[in-house]
Design a binder for these strands. Structure first.
Lengths: 233, 233
DNA sequence: ATTAAACCAATCATCCTACGTTTAGGCGTG
DNA sequence: CACGCCTAAACGTAGGATGATTGGTTTAAT
């Protein structure tokens, strides 16, 4: 019945406030936050208390401090920052396999939950893919392809799945673009058509089967190329 | 060619060292780490520097400080702690859907990559499930069922997938046990047999189909119960 | 003998002062 | 225009001090 009470330290209060400012977009990625003296005055805490809070968020990947310059927001999501760290320590193929898992489930749920707006966007993006193929526009195709996948995942209306998928996509963006470039052939376009068609018909099984075909073709292509090399940074 | 250099602050060095001690199991979960004066002496840093490092790990969920008492290790994985926080803020059904995604992919990969040891363990656990069903031993069944699923995911040999799956399982452990309790009927047992059989035959498609059937049955059961209520804490 | 209250040492939480190091920007010179 | 120097701003680290909390021990009351 009664909730366990818990006294929150000043540092934790400050850290949570700052985290809120970042997650809500008040402090945007790339922005330089106010300097220590200013924050001390605003929050009415000592420098040590403030620094401990800033250090917590720095370690979590949300902030980045530059001595002599200031402190910058470098991510708006702790989960995103932690996943990025984890992914960069992982074998890329393993990460792609996790992404495939999310794509399959996403397609399944998208077929059940998609809205008309989302359908229109998918059809629009699919047409852009087709146009890019006709023009031989590799980069244009890659961009539209990525957006198509994101829209499909978004149509799952599962926030957690979307978040995991997008963080993985962000971290591996260059690689995913490279893989998308390799897709610029009609077999992938046909599979994409089948996928969008299945989602239109709300046929979850066909949507999953299309994603499965797409993933199988991708794996074959990657293996034929001798694996996945990480892009140079 | 040349790598960008980067000077690591003392705080970051201390935090990473402590994080290593935790991840490697030198500082185990539940353990009280040395007090500040002792750590200051060992690491040859000022108290402020040490406290900033400790605060970073506290905020990350690895440590928990108790004033007057000491500082305790409460998790060995940052990703686990962050995922837990994220999951507890989420709709439980959404989390289960992500878990389903991982289970499908896990079964697919397990059929391809399982070892003989893993097979023996799956067969052993499947037999334990059968025994528990015969005895009407609900809790026994739930335990064996969970271990069977973990072994199958482990047979995927995809570290990242395993880690995500296990963190989700930890966070939702009570709920998963409740769901497993509801499974104690022969339809689930038959599906589990088909799943293990598919993995034995290295038939990835059948393995995925079995997981799909299992998930479909689970969803029907959950919806028939009027949804998923989170267990009281 | 048992229980409750008081006490104490250890430990973390917060504040303050001080100096060191780094950085970006402005200014002057060639 | 490019380079070097200087300066102020800003973060990094150290040390000192006081306050608050906690668990264990001791004392007093029943």
């Amino acid at each position: 019945m009664l909730q366990k009470t818990s006294r929150m330290t000043l540092v934790e209060q400050v850290a949570l406030q700052m985290e809120s400012l970042i997650e809500s977009g008040t402090w945007t990625v790339g922005m330089r936050i106010p300097a220590e003296p200013e924050l001390m005055a605003e929050l009415n805490v000592s420098r040590n208390t403030l620094r401990e809070a800033i250090r917590a968020l720095t370690h979590a990947g949300l902030l980045k401090t530059k001595q002599g310059d200031g402190t910058y927001v470098c991510s708006s999501s702790v989960l995103g920052a932690v996943l990025q760290k984890r992914i960069l320590r992982s074998d890329t193929l393993q990460t792609l396999e996790v992404r495939h898992a999310l794509e399959r489930e996403g397609a399944h749920l998208a077929a059940q939950r998609r809205t008309n707006d989302e359908l229109e966007r998918m059809i629009y993006l699919l047409e852009n893919c087709e146009t890019a193929v006709q023009r031989g526009d590799i980069d244009g195709y890659a961009m539209q392809d990525m957006q198509l996948h994101q829209t499909i995942i978004g149509a799952s209306h599962n926030d957690m799945l979307i978040e995991l998928y997008e963080h993985i996509a962000e971290t591996l963006q260059d690689l995913i673009i490279t893989l998308a470039r390799r897709e610029i052939g009609t077999v992938y376009l046909e599979i994409h058509r089948q996928l969008v068609d299945a989602i239109i018909r709300q046929d979850a099984d066909s949507a999953v089967a299309a994603v499965h075909r797409y993933i199988t073709e991708s794996k074959i292509a990657v293996e034929a190329q001798g694996g996945v090399e990480r892009e140079e940074e």
